[in-house]
Amino acid sequence: MKPKGTRNAGFEERRAELLARMRTRLMLRDAPRPALRELASEAGCSVSTLNHYFGKRDDILIAVFADSGRRGQGQFAATRQAGQDFETSIRDAAAMAWQALTRHGVADALAMGMAEGMRNRQLGPAFIRTMFEPFVIALTERLDVHVARGQMRAVDTRMAALALASPLLLGTLHQSQLGGAHDYPLDGDAFLFHVIESFVRAYRAD
């Protein structure tokens, strides 16, 4: 007899399979936020099965957020690595973030997390903790290196990291998830150059 509380063999594999199916549905553009029953249908299982593997709907979302955070570990690691030259390092970090947002589905994941987490006392903090703040922390660590070298002004580097990350995120959401590209198109390369140049001028050590 299996001891009480022991999980079945293949529990984590089955959970990951269900999570991947639901993640695909949650990140669909132009689709309303799915109810628990719809998530179960997308996963090809019953609501009781989802309850067994995850818990309530909010628990599923928290698991999706955590999965997205794990997927971003490579990006976070690369963001921490400061380049030798301040301006080049900032350009590389911003370009890498912009590419992830616009070409690799990161903006879709962030938009989903923001939509689900907004004004939700459980999901909002979970989204910040697992999906957004890890990038801000990694970028802060990159900036700390430049401050230590005397290449960047001695400022609150976490605030500076937010000052660099925020317009990139807003620009992407404006154009894609919010549909701004149709009526208010933005030259992505010019926008990225503007953000980088503005940041470098503001924070470069004299």
Rank of each mutant, 00 (worst) to 15 (best):
R15E: 10
M118R: 07
H174K: 09
F76H: 14
G150F: 13
R91Q: 13
I128F: 15
M22R: 00
L143T: 11
S176I: 14
Q151I: 00
V200S: 06
T130M: 14
K4M: 09
H52I: 01
M22L: 01
A190H: 07
E133Q: 15
M1Y: 07
D67Q: 12
A109G: 02
L162P: 00
A161D: 07
M96Y: 05
Q151F: 04
G105Q: 02
A202Y: 06
E17I: 04
L143I: 12
R14E: 12
T140L: 09
V64G: 00
A97W: 08
G150C: 10
L101V: 06
R119A: 13
A107N: 05
A63Q: 01
H174Y: 12
A107L: 11
A93R: 13
G55F: 05
A115P: 00
E38C: 01
S68P: 00
Q75R: 07
F76V: 13
F199N: 03
P34R: 05
S41N: 08
V155H: 04
M96D: 13
P167H: 09
T79E: 10
Y53P: 07
S48Q: 10
A115D: 08
A82H: 05
N51D: 01
D67A: 10
V195E: 01
I137Q: 13
A163W: 08
G124S: 08
S46M: 01
I137T: 15
G117D: 01
L19P: 06
R201H: 14
P167N: 08
A9S: 03
A163H: 11
L123F: 07
H104T: 11
E17S: 10
G10H: 11
L173K: 09
A82N: 06
H146D: 11
R153E: 04
D92I: 02
Q151E: 12
L28A: 05
A95Y: 07
Y53N: 09
Q81E: 15
H104P: 05
S176R: 06
L61G: 00
L164W: 06
V155F: 03
D144H: 01
E197M: 08
L170C: 02
A77L: 13
L168A: 09
I128E: 14
D206W: 01
A66M: 07
V145E: 14
A95I: 01
D187C: 07
I62C: 06
D59E: 12
G179D: 10
R91I: 03
T79Y: 08
K4L: 11
F127E: 08
